[in-house]
Nucleic acid binder design. Structure first.
Length: 224
DNA sequence: TCATTAAATTGTT
DNA sequence: AACAATTTAATGA
């Protein structure tokens, strides 16, 4: 397929650039296909590029240095991640794993910095994205303390699905209950309990190694 | 293509 | 946390 059109579809910032800037990006970006379950970026590696999800869904496991207290964030198609490591020129602190088969774009650090220096709209976009991310973390910290575990699972799942927006279609996600547990920061067996409760509420269906969302809106507002 | 085995995921104690 | 049961995948005939 055409690289430019796929960038326009999956990178909101691309249309903000001038024609010559777009051209430069196209020349420097590289796109790679990954099968489901593939490791895209490994924790501890030097960050060379800005990572964009053109299609599919990836998960970002944010681990502490000891490695175990991991919180996961789903990044859907159209999301761009890793600018933190680029800006500070440090090693990646996350594992990025393909949750489904997906196409990943990489914009080299040099091009990324060049855009920062030359495009005001690009800076504005990045600022907006950072702000959104902060808001997301604040919201997470909020319901982490306030909501019951069942509701946390519901909202974490909704968060994963929300940006995907498959209207009316069957929404299923290959994610193990163990991973959901990491996502909601609860134990695996509690995740099982929560999923069963949500299934009882007709909000989702439990499958082997996957869940199927029946009511995204119901998940969003569960327990509130 | 089918049967057996192995690995992974889920449910239960 | 450990164990048992179920499902998918993988291997070999």
């Amino acid at each position: 397929m055409d690289q430019k059109s796929s960038l326009q579809e999956s990178a909101a910032w691309f249309d903000l650039l001038s024609a010559d800037q777009q051209q430069r990006v196209q020349q420097n970006v590289s796109v790679t296909q990954y099968p489901a379950g593939a490791m895209i970026e490994r924790k501890g590696e030097q960050a060379y590029a800005w990572i964009g999800v053109l299609s599919g869904l990836v998960k970002v496991s944010v681990g502490t240095s000891d490695g175990k207290l991991a919180s996961l964030t789903g990044v859907p198609s159209g999301g761009w991640i890793g600018e933190g490591s680029l800006l500070k020129d440090e090693r990646r602190k996350y594992d990025v794993v393909a949750l489904r088969e997906c196409a990943i774009a990489r914009l080299p650090a040099a091009s990324f910095n060049w855009l920062l220096d030359n495009s005001i709209p690009f800076n504005r976009y990045l600022l907006h994205q950072l702000n959104e991310r902060v808001a997301q973390f604040i919201g997470k910290a909020e319901y982490d303390r306030l909501l019951a575990p069942d509701a946390r699972v519901a909202r974490c799942l909704a968060e994963l699905f929300n940006p995907l927006l498959y209207p009316g279609k069957s929404m299923r996600l290959d994610i193990t209950q163990e991973e959901i547990g990491y996502l909601a920061r609860i134990s695996r067996q509690r995740t099982n309990q929560a999923l069963r409760a949500l299934e009882q509420a007709q909000l989702l269906k439990i499958e082997y190694g996957a869940v199927q969302v029946l009511s995204l809106d119901g998940l969003k507002h569960y327990g509130v």
